[in-house]
Amino acid sequence: DVEPGKFYKGVVTRIEKYGAFINLNEQVRGLLRPRDMISLRLENLNVGDEIIVQAIDVRPEKREIDFKYIP
């Protein structure tokens, strides 16, 4: 289970104008929005990159997770 405030290693699987989709595993995916990136820009991410993200909002009923990147 993903818990708000905890850090997780994930893989960038898709990049859109509104953010990057990060997979923690095959069943768990969330969104990293540009506003939640500190010292990292969306255009510097590539599909396949491994990054450490912090879960900031977890909505299991909608199967949605918002992430934050903190270097």
Rank of each mutant, 00 (worst) to 15 (best):
V53P: 00
G30K: 02
G19Y: 06
I65R: 02
M37V: 04
P4Q: 12
I38Q: 12
R35A: 12
I38S: 12
I38W: 07
V53S: 00
A20F: 03
N44I: 08
K68A: 15
R29W: 13
I56M: 13
I22V: 12
E43I: 10
R59Y: 07
V58K: 05
K17T: 13
K17G: 10
I15E: 00
E43H: 11
R41A: 13
K6H: 12
E43S: 13
N25W: 11
N44P: 02
I56F: 10
R33C: 03
Y69T: 03
V11R: 13
I56W: 09
D57A: 15
G10Q: 01
G30H: 02
M37L: 06
V58H: 07
P34T: 10
R29S: 13
K6S: 09
I38Y: 12
N23A: 14
D36T: 02
S39P: 15
L42V: 08
F21W: 14
P34C: 07
M37Y: 02
P4N: 10
I51T: 01
Q27E: 12
F67I: 03
P71R: 08
G30Q: 01
Y69K: 02
G19P: 01
V2Y: 09
F67V: 04
I22M: 01
D1W: 15
E61H: 13
I38T: 12
R41K: 14
P60S: 11
P60T: 10
D1G: 15
N23C: 09
E3M: 15
I38K: 09
R41S: 14
R41F: 10
R14W: 08
Y69F: 12
V47P: 06
Y69L: 06
L31S: 02
Y8M: 02
K9C: 12
E64F: 14
R35S: 11
I15T: 03
I51E: 00
G19I: 03
Y8G: 00
A20K: 00
N23I: 06
I22L: 04
P34V: 13
L40M: 11
I70M: 12
R35F: 07
L24P: 00
K68G: 14
Q27I: 13
K17H: 14
V53Q: 00
A55G: 02
L24M: 04
S39A: 13
F67C: 03
K6N: 11
D49G: 04
N25F: 09
E3L: 14
E16K: 10
L45R: 01
K6F: 08
F7N: 07
R63Q: 13
I52L: 12
K6A: 09
G10P: 00
V11P: 00
I22C: 01
D66E: 06
A55V: 15
D36R: 04
Y18G: 04
R14G: 09
I56G: 07
T13N: 05
L45F: 05
R33P: 02
I51F: 04
I52C: 11
V28I: 14
L31Q: 03
V58P: 04
L31A: 02
Q54F: 13
R59F: 06
L45K: 01
Y18E: 08
G5E: 06
K9E: 06
L42R: 03
K62L: 14
I70Y: 12
L24Q: 00
D1M: 15
R14M: 09
R14K: 12
L42S: 03
E26F: 13
D1N: 14
M37S: 05
R35I: 09
D66Q: 07
V11M: 11
D1V: 15
G48R: 04
I38R: 11
G48E: 03
V28G: 04
V12T: 01
G19C: 03
V12R: 00
R33K: 08
D49P: 01
V58S: 08
P34F: 08
P60D: 08
P34L: 11
N23W: 10
D49I: 06
R59E: 04
P71K: 07
L45I: 11
I56P: 01
P4K: 15
E26C: 10
E26Q: 14
L40Y: 04
L31R: 03
P71M: 08
F21G: 01
E43L: 08
G10N: 00
E16H: 09
E64N: 07
G5K: 06
F21R: 04
K6E: 09
P34D: 07
G19D: 01
E3A: 12
R35P: 06
I65T: 04
V53Y: 01
E3K: 14
V47R: 05
K6I: 09
I38H: 14
F7I: 08
P34N: 08
D49Q: 13
A20Q: 00
D57M: 12
V11K: 11
L40P: 02
G48P: 01
D1A: 15
E61G: 13
D49W: 05
T13W: 05
N44M: 14
I56C: 06
E16F: 12
E61R: 09
E26N: 14
G19V: 05
E50F: 15
A55H: 01
Y18I: 10
I56K: 12
I70Q: 10
D57V: 13
I51Q: 00
L24V: 09
G30D: 02
K9A: 10
V47H: 04
V58W: 08
V28L: 14
Y18H: 08
S39T: 11
T13P: 00
F67H: 02
R35D: 09
R59P: 03
R33H: 05
Y8I: 02
Y18W: 14
A20N: 00
V28Q: 10
I56A: 10
L31K: 03
E50W: 15
R14N: 07
K6M: 11
V2E: 02
E61V: 10
A20R: 00
L24D: 00
N25C: 09
L42Q: 03
K68F: 09
E64V: 10
F67Q: 02
G5I: 03
E50Q: 14
I51C: 04
K68H: 07
I52G: 02
V28K: 05
M37D: 03
M37G: 03
L40F: 05
E43N: 11
I65P: 02
E64G: 07
M37I: 06
D66N: 09
K9S: 10
V11S: 07
P4L: 15
F21Q: 05
T13E: 08
E16Y: 12
I51P: 00
S39R: 11
R63D: 11
R29P: 02
G5N: 09
E61K: 11
R29M: 12
R63A: 11
Y69Q: 07
E64H: 11
Y8S: 01
K17W: 15
N44C: 13
D57F: 12
L24S: 01
R59Q: 05
E26H: 15
I22Y: 00
E16R: 09
V12P: 00
K62T: 11
K6G: 10
L45Q: 00
P4R: 14
T13R: 06
Q27P: 03
V47D: 03
D57R: 15
I15K: 07
I15W: 02
G30V: 04
G19T: 02
E64L: 14
L45V: 07
P71Q: 08
G10F: 04
L31N: 02
E26D: 14
R35M: 10
E64Y: 13
E64M: 12
I22N: 00
D1S: 15
R35H: 11
E16W: 10
K68Y: 08
R33M: 04
L42G: 03
G30S: 01
G30L: 04
N25S: 14
L45N: 00
L40C: 09
Q27K: 15
I65N: 02
V11D: 01
V53C: 04
D57Q: 15
E43V: 10
M37R: 01
E43T: 10
L42H: 04
K62G: 07
K9W: 14
N46Q: 15
K17I: 13
